[in-house]
Simulated scan of single mutants.
Amino acid sequence: MGSVLDRRIVFSLLFLIIVTLLSYNADSKCDFKAIFNFGDSNSDTGGFWAAFPAQSGPWGMTYFKKPAGRASDGRLIIDFLAESLGMPFLSPYLQSIGSDFRHGANFATLASTVLLPNTSLFVSGISPFSLAIQLNQMKHFKVKVDETHSSDQQALKILPSRDVFGKSLYTFYIGQNDFTSNLAAIGVDGVKQYLPQVISQIAGTIKEIYGIGGRTFLVLNLAPVGCYPSILTGYIHTASDLDKFGCLISVNKAVEYYNALLKKTLSKTRTEVKNATVIYLDTHKILFDLFQYPNSYGMKHGIKACCGHGGHPYNFDQKLFCGTSKVIRNSTVTAKACHDPHNYVSWDGIHMTEAANHRISTAILDGSLSDPPFTLSNLCAS
């Protein structure tokens, strides 16, 4: 009798363990159901090229093996974040064919700014899809999701649930074009004058999204653009203007000013949006380190572009961008990609390689760049 009872107890315990494990797996699914991203070419997964189709090789050569609407040889930071949360890559909001918005949408487009592009502050070559436009697209998207759930069951196959907006991650990787677009024309001091306006617009956008249900926000700060080949070749300077790593001192000091103000503003914003999480991500920290000490990360080249023309030291020509050709001295010259982009921090003189994006993403996920502390990798099952 005792042995039968013992067996029953053992089976009961095993059953409880199995149920507990199953419950744990179910509960450990990702806390976030979607990502909504706002940005420029640093996080554009195809929006610009959906609006203005023209992209050709060597873009996408490392991961996608073909152009994939990204300003890189492979995946972007936003791609790595989506993968880590168990989601597919974000579909561009502007892409009409093949998009799946069940796990969010990407409003970023190449050359986008925070401030409206029709202001006199900016030169030509800026996208019409400013942050204000991207916010309006987000609001329209939410309205259409609400309406569709009431009227069109077929469309629900590519749309998220109504309650997804409070369970989503809202990411911002934008501001670089506001900083760089007129740097050569009005100088560092001129650019610094309107940076508080840029930051105020980002904070205001967070508050507007909070008003329609958003609760978790990640804001990436500004990269050390004074190390970018495009800036080093386009901004008039002398050798004394460079630090020992070859980066422009005054430009990077202005970046530090921007980032300090952004961090301070987000701290204030945090007190204004109750029961919300607003995270400042210091991606500048690791990217600056990559430019200065590429060898420490298993890479070889910091301020030299992989894809470009011109050779040492920057391999960048302001008139011959990656993948394009022109006639020089009766010969056709093409800005070609290197064969080993994994050894480069800079892909095309303006954007990062997949290798650099991967290293930045790893630091974001482990929480080492977050203020306040926020470990994204702990929020989802492995």
Rank of each mutant, 00 (worst) to 15 (best):
G2C: 00
V4A: 06
R7F: 11
V10E: 06
F11M: 07
F11L: 14
L13D: 01
F15T: 05
S28A: 14
F32P: 08
K33D: 13
I35A: 02
F36Q: 06
G39A: 07
S43G: 13
W49F: 14
Q55R: 09
P58H: 09
K65Q: 10
G69V: 02
R75H: 10
D79E: 01
L81I: 15
G86M: 09
M87P: 07
S91C: 02
F101H: 12
G104Y: 03
A105E: 02
A108K: 03
A108N: 01
T109H: 11
S112N: 04
S120C: 00
S124K: 12
I126N: 04
I126L: 03
S127D: 07
L135F: 11
K139A: 09
K139N: 10
K139E: 11
F141I: 07
F141L: 06
K144Q: 13
V145H: 03
D146S: 06
D146L: 12
H149K: 08
S151T: 15
Q153Y: 04
A155Y: 05
P160S: 08
D163Y: 05
V164C: 11
K167D: 10
S168C: 09
T171H: 05
D178A: 07
D178Q: 08
T180L: 08
A184P: 03
A184H: 09
V188H: 08
G190F: 00
L195N: 12
L195D: 10
P196E: 10
Q197E: 12
Q197W: 06
S200P: 00
I202R: 08
I206G: 00
E208D: 14
I209K: 02
Y210E: 10
F217A: 09
V219H: 03
A223D: 13
V225H: 04
C227H: 02
I231T: 14
I231P: 03
L232D: 09
A239D: 14
D243A: 13
L248C: 09
I249A: 10
V255W: 08
L262V: 05
K263R: 14
K263V: 03
K263A: 12
K264E: 12
K264F: 08
S267M: 10
E272I: 09
E272K: 12
K274Q: 13
A276C: 05
T277Q: 15
Y280S: 07
L281G: 06
T283F: 12
H284V: 03
F288E: 15
D289V: 11
F291N: 13
Q292G: 07
Y293V: 11
N295D: 11
M299T: 00
K300E: 13
A305R: 00
C307K: 08
G308F: 05
H309R: 13
G310D: 00
H312K: 05
K319P: 04
L320H: 05
C322W: 01
T324P: 04
R329A: 15
T332V: 14
K336N: 15
A337K: 01
A337C: 14
V345L: 07
W347D: 06
W347S: 01
D348L: 01
I350M: 13
T353F: 05
S361W: 05
I364K: 03
D366W: 05
D366K: 07
G367R: 03
S368F: 02
S368D: 04
L369T: 03
L369I: 07
P372I: 07
P372H: 05
P373I: 03
F374M: 06
L379H: 13
S382I: 12
S382W: 11
